[in-house]
Design a protein around this nucleic acid. Structure first.
Lengths: 265, 265
DNA sequence: AAATTAAGTTTCACATAGTGGAACAAATTT
DNA sequence: AAATTTGTTCCACTATGTGAAACTTAATTT
C-alpha cells in the first residue's frame, strides 16, 4: 500500500491521466507518458483513447502527441463563472487596480495550492487565462499564507502537511515550524506579506476574503517590486484592500456561494 | 436506439454529467439533475459523488447543490496555453486591437460550435474567461461561417448537419440550403460577414486562420455596431485582418500545432 | 536490404468496478 | 401525525475495464 492517493475507479484514473498530460506543458508522446505513469501499457492506452474520444485530450496524428483538449476551456468557463469569486469580484478589482496602479491578484485555494482566478495588471492590458488558472505554492505567496492563516484548523494542518517547502529565495520559509510561526504573526497583524519569498525583488501584501461565517473564500493581493515599494508602503494600502475585500465578501454572500467541497478525512 | 450519442464507458458518463451540471449555469440540486438525466437514480448519484471527490464538481453541503469545480479552471489553463491559438496570437491581437479600436475575437471550432479563446475589447478593460471559453453558434456568427467555409468537406457536412438554425434575428440563416449558399459566397469573397444574424445592430467581418496545409486552425473577427460601421467600412479592415491572420498562422506553424482530433466517422 | 530494436496497437481469459431496482432514511409538505 | 418528496444505501448481477502477452508497425542499426 505504498500509495494512499485518491484514485477511485476508472474516472479517477482517467482524470489522473488528464492531469498528467496537462502537467507536461507540451504535446507528449505515449512513450513519455508510459514512463512516468503508474498504469500498465494497455490500461494507459485505453484511458488515453477514451479521453481523446471525449475531446478532453487532443491527439495530433502526425506527431503522435497528446495535449489537453479545448473542451476543457469550455467547461472551465462555466466553472470560473459559477464557482469562482471572479465574476463577483470583477468590478471591485477594476476599481482597486485603477486606484492603486499595481498588479492585483484574486486567488482561491484548490487542493493545497493557490489557484489564481483573476488578475489586474496596471500596465499590460490583461493576460486572461494565462494568469487565471495558474497555480502557485501556498507557503511562499501572500495570498497563500493569508488564506491558510484563516483556514479551519484541520484544513490548515492538512495543507501545511502537503507543502513542499522548496527554497525559491533566501527568504523562503522552509519548514512547517517557520510557516506556523509566520501564520500566527499574520493572524494578529491581520494581513500577510510576501517578502521576496517566492521571487527575488517581488513583494506583496495580501488579505483573506472571508464569508460572514468566517470561512475562507479566497485571497486578494497587491504585488510590487522592491524598487517601487517597501513592505511599509505596501502596508499603507491595507485599508483600501480591506474595503475591497469587504465588498467582495458581502456580494459573495448574496450570490449564494457554493461550499468548497471537503476532502474526505 | 433513440440516441446514437457518444457515451463510451464510465468516463464518458461521468463527463456527460459534468457537462450537464455546467450547462445549468447555476448551482443545481440532485433532483433537478435526475429529472433531465438519462441515468437511473443510483447511477447518477454515484457519478456525482465521484466527480465531487475528484474536485471536478463542488458540492455545497448546506444548499445541497452541485457546481463545476475549480479544478477545471486549472486544467483549462493548460489547455488554453497548449492547445489553443491564443498564446501564439496574443501579440498580434494586441496590435490589431490597438490599431482598429473595435472588439476583436479569436475563435476555434469545438464540436460543431464556435469556441472563443481570446478577445480584445477597445473600451472596456477586458472580460477574461467571461469571453474565453464561451461558445456560440457556427451558422450565424462571422467566425463560425468563416471557419466552416474553409473546413474539409466531410467536417463541413457533419457540422452543418448539427446546427439548430434557430432564428435569432430577421437576418439569421435558417436552413442548410441558405447556409451552403452563403458559404460559397464567403469562399469566393475570401471572408465572412455577420450581417446582424445573431444580434440586431451587431455586425462583423471574419477571416479563417489556415495552416500551410490549408487546414482550419481558427477564426479572427472584428465586431462593431451598425451605428458605427457599415459592412463596407468593415470590409475595408480586411487587409489588416489578412496581415494578422498571416502572422498568427505562420507562428502557429512553428509552434508545432496539435491536430484537431478527428471525430470517428 | 536484412536484422534488430523500440514504439504503438490488439487480444482475451479474468475479475474488478459499476449497475440499477428496490428498500430505506431524512427532510418537506399536507 | 400521516403523506409525499428528496436523498442515500444495499446487494445480486453483469457490463466494463484489466493487463500480460502476442502482435504490428515504424525507426535504427548492422
Amino acid at each position: 500500500m505504498a500509495k494512499a492517493e485518491q484514485s477511485d475507479g476508472t474516472v479517477g484514473k482517467a482524470l489522473n491521466v488528464l492531469d498528467q498530460v496537462a502537467g507536461f506543458g507540451h504535446p507528449v508522446r505515449f512513450r513519455e507518458l508510459l514512463a512516468s505513469s503508474d498504469y500498465p501499457k494497455a490500461t494507459l492506452y485505453r484511458l488515453l483513447q477514451t479521453l481523446v474520444q471525449q475531446r478532453m485530450l487532443t491527439f495530433d496524428a502526425e506527431r503522435q502527441t497528446y495535449s489537453p483538449g479545448v473542451r476543457l476551456v469550455r467547461l472551465a468557463h462555466h466553472a470560473w463563472q459559477q464557482s469562482s469569486l471572479a465574476p463577483v469580484a470583477r468590478p471591485y478589482l477594476d476599481a482597486l487596480s485603477r486606484s492603486i496602479g499595481e498588479t492585483v491578484h484574486l486567488a482561491q485555494l484548490d487542493h493545497s495550492q493557490v489557484l489564481y482566478v483573476d488578475k489586474r495588471n496596471a500596465n499590460v492590458p490583461v493576460e486572461m487565462f494565462s494568469q487565471a488558472g495558474k497555480v502557485g505554492p501556498v507557503y511562499c505567496t501572500g495570498v497563500g499564507k493569508a488564506m491558510l492563516a484563516w483556514s479551519r484548523i484541520d484544513d490548515q494542518t492538512r495543507i501545511i502537511e502537503q507543502q513542499s517547502f522548496h527554497r525559491f529565495t533566501d527568504n523562503t520559509l522552509t519548514s512547517r515550524r517557520a510557516l506556523r510561526a509566520e501564520l500566527d504573526i499574520i493572524c494578529s497583524r491581520g494581513f500577510a506579506f510576501d517578502n521576496e519569498e517566492h521571487e527575488p525583488g517581488i513583494i506583496c501584501v495580501a488579505l483573506p476574503i472571508l464569508s460572514e461565517g468566517g470561512r475562507v473564500l479566497g485571497g486578494l493581493s497587491v504585488t510590487s517590486t522592491t524598487a517601487r515599494h517597501s513592505l511599509d508602503s505596501l502596508a499603507a494600502l491595507v485599508p483600501q484592500l480591506k474595503t475591497t475585500v469587504g465588498q467582495i465578501s458581502e456580494d459573495a454572500e448574496n450570490w449564494l456561494f457554493p461550499e468548497q467541497s471537503k476532502t474526505h478525512a
